[in-house]
Design a protein around this nucleic acid. Structure first.
Length: 408
RNA sequence: CGGAGAGUAGUAUACCGGCAGUACACCUGCUUUGGGAGCAGGUAGACCGGGUUCGAUUCCCGGCUCUCCGACCA
């Protein structure tokens, strides 16, 4: 893509109305734009990142059998009355022109269970795993920390339907591993943390937490094994119950959570199936969430330096950023740009007119694309291009063919 | 929802009870071209409502918005 087509501009100064690291860098780089507290637009650059994150999530959900669907955000009151959750304060409530009560979706257990009523009736229909990536609306008392805690935010929610608890338990472990892979692929070290199971179960649920001062949670975790627990449910726990190492404490960002719903929703809403013997049984459910927008904010919180964002390759908006520094350089840069596009490499060409080298470099550092290629009279004199990785300080001169081999 | 702070141009800021200034960005021209370059010219601004006052962006009151701390957070 041509940088002149990006729509957004970079900013030298961060707006003072949001001091979090992710907001400062994402706004300055032109990735996002704040409309009101907790409500963000994703500009072309930011949307590309979100799309890449969603791609990783889709792959991993599909790898464990998940099938994507899409549910509405506009919900009739009746469906929430059934579970007595219309009273939940986080739900945005409005009336349509006929005076009917409408809620904006802040989660979809009720909706998916309602849908399942007409599609699941036999043991032959089970198990099922469906997910969506969709915007949720929550009337948070206080939005904060840039894109990390919003009032409208994207969420991947997967719901699983099972014959019995054992089947849920097996899938739950699979989902846990899929989550681990997702966070690893997007460049995050996430602890799988034991947390309150809430009203639905006596068991722990699991949250995926990334250590960061920008987080709102506090976890205790073990530095020698993978034990971790939310401080809310870790009262007086001083040493690891597995290996007796002294536990560490840290603030952290909750980037995902999974929990076993059991038969709570199916019992209330009457979701049952008949088994081989014709016996009616409650469907056992699980629910699995990840916030892709929050993930993006968390990646920025973790991967940045004094110059800007340092995107992990898997979620970077582009893989290569080409910067020409002269007219001749621009001609050569365009050729390289075309070669890379032809090979399917996501590439951004700084085609902006009359920019100084310093300005281009600063913007490149801010935007944080993994590979930076400079084409100038200096490099052309040696028939080379200059290649530098965003997370390294030294640049290398090489010929274009070697670079193509490196990134394709 | 409790407590605190802040609202001046696209962004960051200054001053002031009496013509609102600067930097960056943006536009024009010239120069410059390996780390936000220079010169000249230009476009663009006081959150809303009320009060005090000859006069309010400035002082007072109310509202709205944003941020922070707390509460909340399937």
């Amino acid at each position: 893509m041509l940088q002149s087509r990006l729509f957004s501009h970079t900013q030298k100064e961060a707006p003072k109305d949001d001091p979090s690291v992710n907001a400062r860098l994402l706004v300055r780089g032109g990735f996002v734009d704040k409309l009101m507290a907790g409500v963000w637009s994703y500009m072309p650059l930011g949307w590309r990142v979100l799309t890449r994150i969603n791609h990783v999530i889709r792959e991993e959900m599909e790898a464990i059998g998940g099938v994507e669907l899409h549910m509405p955000a506009l919900h009739p009151r009746e469906i929430w009355d059934a579970t007595d959750r219309w009273k939940v304060e986080e739900m945005y409530k409005l009336k349509d022109r006929s005076g009917r009560d409408i809620g904006l979706g802040w989660t979809h257990e009720e909706i998916i269970t309602h849908i399942a009523l007409s599609h699941i009736s036999s043991y032959r229909d089970l198990p099922q795993y469906v997910f969506q990536i969709q915007d949720k609306f929550r009337d948070e008392p206080r939005a904060k920390s840039g894109v990390i805690r919003g009032r409208e935010f994207s969420m991947k929610d997967l719901y699983s339907f099972h014959r019995n608890q054992e089947d849920l338990d097996v899938f739950y472990e699979k989902a846990k591993h899929a989550y681990r892979r997702i966070f690893e692929r997007v460049g995050l070290t996430a602890y799988c943390v034991e947390a309150s199971g809430g009203a639905f179960t006596k068991e722990f649920s699991h949250e995926f937490q990334v250590l960061s001062d920008a987080g709102e949670d506090v976890i205790v975790y073990c530095s020698s094994c993978d034990f971790a627990r939310n401080q809310e449910v870790a009262t007086d726990l001083k040493e690891c119950p597995h290996c007796h190492t002294t536990l560490q404490t840290s603030k952290s960002i909750e980037v995902g959570n999974i929990f076993k719903l059991g038969t709570k929703f199916s019992d209330i809403l009457g979701l049952a199936y008949q088994d081989e013997a014709g016996e009616k049984c409650s469907v056992v459910m699980g629910s699995y969430g990840i916030g892709p927008g929050r993930l993006m904010g968390t990646i920025v919180e973790v991967h940045n330096d004094s110059r800007g964002i340092v995107w992990p390759v898997e979620v970077a908006p582009f893989k290569v950023h080409i910067i020409p520094l002269s007219e001749k350089g621009e001609d050569r840069a365009r050729l390289l740009y075309q070669e890379l596009e032809k090979k399917g490499v996501a590439v951004l060409l700084d085609d902006r007119k009359e920019r100084t080298a310093g300005e281009r470099f600063s913007d490149a550092d801010l935007i944080g694309i993994p590979w930076r290629v400079v084409v100038s009279d200096k490099t052309l004199a040696e028939e080379k291009i200059e290649v530098k990785k965003r997370n390294e300080t030294d640049a290398t001169l090489m010929d274009a063919a070697s670079f193509l081999k490196l990134v394709c």
